[in-house]
Design a binder for these strands. Structure first.
Ligand SMILES: [Zn+2]
Ligand SMILES: [Zn+2]
Ligand SMILES: [Zn+2]
Ligand SMILES: [Zn+2]
Lengths: 136, 136
DNA sequence: ATTGTAATGTTATGTTATTACATTGTTGTG
DNA sequence: CACAACAATGTAATAACATAACATTACAAT
């Protein structure tokens, strides 16, 4: 499994705009929501967003949430294993938290090995109700 | 004949057609692929497929793969925990296998509890290369 | 037969993502 | 500088996935 350290090559203008939009959001954003937010900055077409996202995903600064068709800025300081992150998605408030769990990673790796499956990436997205929303 | 493990009400005509399409496929199918396969049976609109899929998902006969926007018939003998199934998706041949792992389920539940997150469903989709494709 | 409800049919539209091609900007080389 | 090579961006069109809104049909209970 490839180690994904946050590559810090200099971002281009569009990549920076998209990254900032995600970093300032308090939840996941869809590509089209980002597009709308950046129309004032000259964005006019989905591809401008998707191209920037591709790069940000590659460099590990952003994650894609498959079950939401949306994107979040990585909140991890030490993103050693970006391909195995666990996301907990609150279905009430929409907030997402990101957890790295070494034991879980190892467990999945063991399961894959037992089936002779070469694991390259794990999508793990938990749905439910977050602590804040439970107590309301 | 032993009863199918998935206890359910009798399926309607459209539900049966969609179920059969998935059961006979050797990999996941998108809703639109199913639609095309069933045009000969009178299907003309996506909604006919999506409505049938909703029911089949509800009754546990079918799973949705979030990272593929596609659907598979459940291949489990023991479908006790449909909301926590692990899928291994081969990126070479497209085949999908389904695994129930009690220890993994418990591990995820523990992680969620530790964050006081009420877990209702876990999407777990592993990507990689299956045994058959590795040896080629 | 009447009525209520589930299932289905139909049209239109909304949302997410990619293909193809044109233009501009930047960098390195002779 | 000139100019080739490549990276980044712009633009238009379309593909792929999903739902909303409303009309009709099938069928069982009274
Ligand atoms: Zn991260
Ligand atoms: Zn919440
Ligand atoms: Zn199953
Ligand atoms: Zn394979």
């Amino acid at each position: 499994m490839s180690e994904h350290i946050h590559a810090h090559e200099k971002l281009t203008k569009n990549q920076t705009l998209v990254m900032d939009a995600l970093a300032n959001a308090d939840g996941p954003l869809s590509a089209y929501t980002i597009l709308d937010q950046l129309r004032g900055n000259g964005f006019r077409a989905p591809l401008q967003v998707y191209r920037a996202l591709d790069k940000l995903l590659d460099s590990g600064l952003v994650h894609r949430l498959e079950s939401l068709n949306a994107f979040v800025a990585c909140r991890h300081d030490d993103c050693t294993d970006h391909e195995q992150t666990v996301f907990m998605i609150c279905e009430t408030c929409g907030k997402v938290s990101e957890i790295a769990d070494k034991a879980l990673t190892q467990h999945l790796q063991k399961m894959a090995s037992a089936s002779q499956f070469s694991l390259t990436k794990a999508t793990i997205e938990l749905r439910g109700r977050c602590k804040a929303c439970k107590t309301v």
